[in-house]
């Protein structure tokens, strides 16, 4: 049994947001929702000001509150320790969203990717519309990644929730999640916490770590090292 999770090195993270964009690209994520996001906070009074940028994603908690709250077992833990979602079982009750202490579960309240069906141009006769781009590329979603559909719905339909899967389709091929692969500073490291020789275990042993809301008792598996 593996227990996959992530270490985020906050000294390496430059706050560029590439992880969020890469995630959208890889997982066909709609506008207005984020599987990979961030928190920002400015504290203190000049000249003693501190700025924090903390990337966030599903914590794939060992004791996942969303899994407990889901009335249909649509949220479940897999044999790699990932917290995954079965769109065919989801009834869209949003209990998981309420239970998640990290607010990282999104709900499709409308038919997704409406932008690519909209014929409105930003500048009339100056720019193309989403619909035009979609028609020219012959794709409902011009940046659609068919690889996503190998383990999860390629595009999640209206009426259900969706969230980060730690790119389980890439992990299945021994590839890094796309956010980690795309990070220009190498701040995201994914590995098996059950393997004592894994890099993630070495990093948290070397630097110590912080977790988001440890008091929630969810045993999150995203570890932040070298916090400012």
């Amino acid at each position: 049994m593996a227990r996959y999770g992530m270490v985020i090195d906050l000294h390496k993270c430059v706050g560029c947001g590439a992880c969020g964009i890469a995630c959208k690209n890889e997982n066909n994520v709609d506008q207005g929702m984020f599987w990979a996001h961030h928190l920002k906070r400015t504290t203190g009074v000049f000249p003693n000001v501190s700025y924090e940028y903390v990337p966030t994603l599903c914590n794939h908690c060992d004791n996942a509150a969303c899994v407990k709250a889901c009335p249909t077992k649509a949220m479940y833990k897999d044999d790699k320790g990932l917290t995954l979602h079965n769109p065919d079982k989801c009834i869209g009750c949003k209990s998981c969203m309420q239970a998640c202490p990290y607010d990282v579960i999104n709900f499709n309240s409308k038919e997704p990717h409406a932008f690519w069906r909209d014929s409105t141009s930003l500048i009339d006769k100056g720019t193309g519309s989403g619909q035009e781009t979609s028609q020219k590329t012959g794709q409902k979603l011009p940046y659609y990644n068919p690889e996503r559909a190998t383990t999860y719905a390629g595009i999640r339909p209206k009426g259900i929730v969706e969230k980060c899967t730690l790119c389980d389709h890439r992990l299945a091929k021994d590839e890094q999640p796309y956010c980690a692969y795309s990070c220009p500073s190498g701040a995201r490291i994914v590995g098996d916490f059950d393997d004592p020789t894994s890099e993630v275990n070495k990093l948290i042993a070397q630097y110590g770590y912080k977790q988001l809301k440890p008091h929630a008792g969810t045993k999150p598996k995203v570890f932040y090292i070298r916090h400012f």
Partner: peptide, 16 residues
């Protein structure tokens, strides 16, 4: 209020 109201009955046989 459910996103997928027709699946309500599944709460009985997918009981958690």
């Amino acid at each position: 209020e459910l996103g997928r109201p027709l699946r309500l009955i599944t709460t009985l046989y997918n009981f958690n």
